[in-house]
Amino acid sequence: MFNDKKIGSLYVAPFVIGFLLFTAFPFVASFVLSLTDAQLQDQLGSANFTGLQNYTEMGRDATFQKSLGVTFFYVFITVPLKLAFALFIAVVLNFKLRAIGFFRTAYYLPSILGGSVAIAIVWRFVFAGDGLINQALEIIGITGVNWLGEPNTAMFSIILLRLWQFGSAMVVFLAGLKAIPEDLYEAADLDGASRVRQFWMITLPLLTPVLFFNFIMQIVQAFQEFNGPYIITGGGPLKSSYLLPLMIYEEGFKYFNLGYSSALSWVLFVIIAVFTAIAFWSQKHWVFYAQDREDKNGGAQK
């Protein structure tokens, strides 16, 4: 008969199986593949072990280097802008305005829709040569730009698509703002601190744990951006929006270089890991935790 232990195992089985099958196995397999010259169309058995050749290959691959540069550019522009924008809207929405519930929902809406392929397609129409933006510009007598045809503006359009999905970061910021006690601001009011100074001296320092969380999430997300370049720009023009995830996809499933594609994935993984590690390490210099760990001289109670 079933005992408690077996029933318990049964409950966790779906997750464990899913994890092994769709996370652990591909993780290991991709690493092994990255050390071979495996081709998608061939039998796996016919692949040859090539050591680190795929990795050294990247040093000579101009496309990879271009893609890497574009990816860093994309991440370094998108993440700070998105965090700043999400924080700004959260601060505004934290005011006691009329119909605040409506605005909160309205601002979150893009994030529900935004990740979908459908919206990316809409985006393509909006930015197309004869798209909405150019039509609107025409009405007021300005000749539009070929948004998706120019390297600079093509990148701009996929950055904008990501910025537009500031909702989830905003909601986390909003929760963080709500957790700051009102009387801190009242005390600051009495002391004559302006709203702006209150923001810099009270709100922002107390929000750093939330900022840190959002920062990590956004970094990880941004490095993995795929929909935008795939659907809107196709990585072009001139590979100007050819983000690494798109390259990984194309190497594997368009050019069938499974080994090289796997190696690229691992490089992306390491990049993300390094950034996350740096962020965690830097925490002690800028993140304030109300129950913090250091402060030994304080004799703080745990």
Binding site: P181, A187, D189
Partner: peptide, 20 residues
């Protein structure tokens, strides 16, 4: 008048100290 223009200082029940 704004709180800061009244020449008053307040001690809150919660203390309202800036934790950071």
């Amino acid at each position: 008048a704004h709180p800061s223009k009244r020449g008053v200082a307040m001690v809150f029940q919660s203390y309202a100290l800036y934790p950071h």
